[in-house]
Design a protein around this nucleic acid. Structure first.
Length: 602
DNA sequence: CTCACTCGGATAGAAGTC
DNA sequence: GACTTCTATCCGAGTGAG
């Protein structure tokens, strides 16, 4: 039975419900809990020692933590120490208290902690007269800075020192040694932008990088595994840079060109080859990490993402090599690229292999053999009806103009032929299949939400191929931090690879997605699932507590929101600094926190 | 230049809730 | 009947390849 620990901590409330008892119905999620006016009185049904009625806020607070599984004495001590206002800090302290009696390193856990009640989130043709064209025609602030002080003299000096400290701390948090950070600041000056400082350190490191060994140790073997990078022959990413240049060329306006064919560092069945990937030495320290986003992002977005994640070259892969639908994505990771293995059974790569029933009605003039990228929006019934009318009113075969227009719509909306002159959008089951999820993985959510969640998800076979190198390194299982988890593409991939997840700390803002992941987890996993709603609630302190409790993370994985990068977005395709896509900086922040904490812990 | 592709968003109206 | 939630429908442009 799954054990779920829910530490959602936004809006200053923790709310609890009975959770589910492991009896997950095939057609329903745990009862929806968001709509009914949450309030302090509903936070805790009863206090641990029966002080339910008229409980004071602090009693409720104590009861809440007690229900979460902490000892009352510990809770009282923590609240006394921190105060009751800062629940996040109280929680951190409680997690710290429990370090000693939690056997987090073992291969089993068995603690039952209630879940919380969620609040609401969100979450003309001019040419052909055969063509019925009348019908057609009808138709946050990630970069918070301290406010400036207007002092002078000593204050200025202090300010300068404080800025120096801050910059050094930022660099140390990114994994650079303090002395190198100091040297870089002396070389470049105090006002130098962070990315230039990073470049400078990379440049100075260049001569003594050890690129071909990683320093990860598995939970048993501590054997060193070789990366494929060859420091003498390594290819500089971004074109032509040598010596002291950073791997992506250092400029601001540069854009990363997408490889063609988009096969990443190798496809299943390829002959092993050396990947000329540049990995800075400090990026190779634990944990493993894996970041994903759309390949066809706005100009310069991938250069900036790469720059923020240690200058590592993205691996661009089109999932059309893994399934019957295109899905062009970029992945930045520090995983070894040798010894990858593919999930079996190998999914069909063409539409007819995936859905043989459609071949009957597929017209010869529709040459598509693979589907385009599965997105979050689906074609309307009116559109498919218009196509039907246009074809019915045209000749057989249709005129060139009708064919062209119909094909445009079919490509755009991923329509398939379900009858004579009749097209339809894919259903949720078909999307699940194409993306590599178990049948009915998303069942229980409304159709619209299923489509949206699926459109936002990983292609499991692709990601599993990359993650497959972890299987032998973690025979006892892994602790995973899953950021922007969605419907659990990373978790499903690891599960399909046979990698046990001891603990997954999952962060996902969409309630429907969380329900889907939790339901799947209940049905398939025996590890611990810890849920957070908002990446911004994962503070440095919370991360430190989790690391102390779990003994560290083995993998940090996630794809940050693409809303402001994706081509389909007609309204706010404003780039990385857009409201949603800027959250990629939280991925970087959290990764840096983890690396620095784990480096200090040893 | 043309062509193909794209993990989307806003909104009016329907449906549900109290 | 007011309010909230859900659903269906409609809405191009940025980007890169050739």
């Amino acid at each position: 039975m799954a054990v779920i620990v829910d530490l959602v901590s936004d809006d200053d409330v923790f709310e609890l419900d009975e959770g589910n008892d492991g009896q997950v119905g095939v057609s329903s999620y745990p009862a929806r809990r968001n709509a009914d006016a949450p309030g302090p009185s509903r936070l805790v049904r009863q206090d641990a020692d029966g002080m339910a009625n008229g409980a004071t806020p602090s009693a409720s607070l104590v009861g809440m933590y007690v229900e979460m599984g902490f000892l009352k004495e510990m809770v009282l001590k923590a609240i006394k120490e921190i105060g009751k206002r800062d629940e996040s800090a109280v929680l951190s302290l409680l997690l710290a208290y429990t370090e000693d009696d939690d056997s987090v390193g073992s291969c089993s856990t068995s603690r039952r902690i209630p879940q919380r009640v969620e609040d609401d989130d969100d979450d003309d043709d001019e040419e052909d007269d055969d063509f019925d064209f009348e019908d057609w025609d009808d138709d946050v602030d990630a970069g918070q800075r301290d406010p400036h002080s207007d002092g002078s003299g000593d204050e200025e000096f202090l300010q300068e020192m404080s800025q120096l400290d801050k910059q050094i701390k930022s660099l140390v948090d990114m994994g650079f040694p303090e002395d190198e950070a100091n040297r870089a600041l002396r070389r470049c000056g105090l006002d130098t932008p962070m990315h230039v400082l990073v470049d400078s350190i990379y440049a100075s490191q260049h001569d003594h990088e050890v690129m071909d060994e990683n320093r990860f140790s598995s939970c048993v073997g501590r054997k060193k595994a070789r990366f494929t990078e060859d420091s003498k022959k390594r290819k500089r990413y971004g074109g032509g840079a040598h010596g002291s240049q950073p791997p992506w060329d250092g400029g601001h306006e540069e854009s990363i060109s997408l490889p063609k064919p988009m096969v990443g560092f190798g496809l299943p069945g390829d002959r092993p080859r050396s990947v000329g990937r540049w990995l800075p030495a400090h990026s190779m320290r634990a944990p493993f990490f894996y970041y994903e986003n759309v390949a066809l992002a706005t100009k310069g977005a991938w250069a900036e993402i790469s720059r923020s994640i240690y200058g590592i070259e993205p691996e661009f892969v089109d999932s059309k090599y893994f399934c019957a639908a295109l899905r062009k994505r970029g992945y930045i990771h520090n995983l070894p690229t040798e010894g990858r293995s593919v999930l079996r059974p190998i999914p069909p790569k063409t539409i007819f292999e995936a859905f043989p029933q459609y071949e009957t009605w597929w017209p010869s003039w529709d040459q598509r053999r693979q589907l385009n990228c599965l997105q979050t929006c689906m074609a309307s019934a009116k559109l498919t009806e218009r196509i039907h009318r246009a074809l019915a009113n045209s000749t057989d075969p249709p005129t060139q103009a009708v064919q062209k227009r119909v094909l445009e719509e079919c490509r755009k909306w991923n329509l398939v032929w379900i009858g004579k002159n009749e097209v339809a959008a894919l259903d949720s089951l078909e999307m699940e299949f194409l993306l590599g999820y178990p049948r009915d993985h998303t069942r229980g959510a409304s159709k619209k939400k299923r489509d949206k969640c699926l459109g936002n998800s990983f292609q499991v076979d692709t990601v599993a191929f990359h993650l497959s190198v972890l299987k032998d390194r973690f025979p006892c299982g892994m602790n995973v931090l899953s950021l922007f988890s969605g419907i659990g593409g990373a978790e499903v991939a690891l599960h399909k690879l046979g990698i046990r997840m001891k603990t997954v700390v999952s962060v996902e803002i969409c309630e429907a997605s969380r329900n889907i992941l939790r339901t799947w987890w209940d049905q398939t996993q025996d590890g611990t699932l810890i849920e957070f709603r908002d990446v911004q609630s994962l503070t440095h302190e919370n991360i430190a507590s989790l690391i102390r409790q779990l003994g560290g993370f083995d993998l940090v994985i996630g794809g940050s929101p693409c809303n402001n990068l994706a081509g389909s977005n007609r309204h706010h395709r404003v780039g990385l600094e857009g409201d949603q896509s800027v959250l990629f900086r939280d991925y970087v922040r959290i990764l840096n926190s983890i690396k620095s904490i784990m480096a200090n812990v040893g």
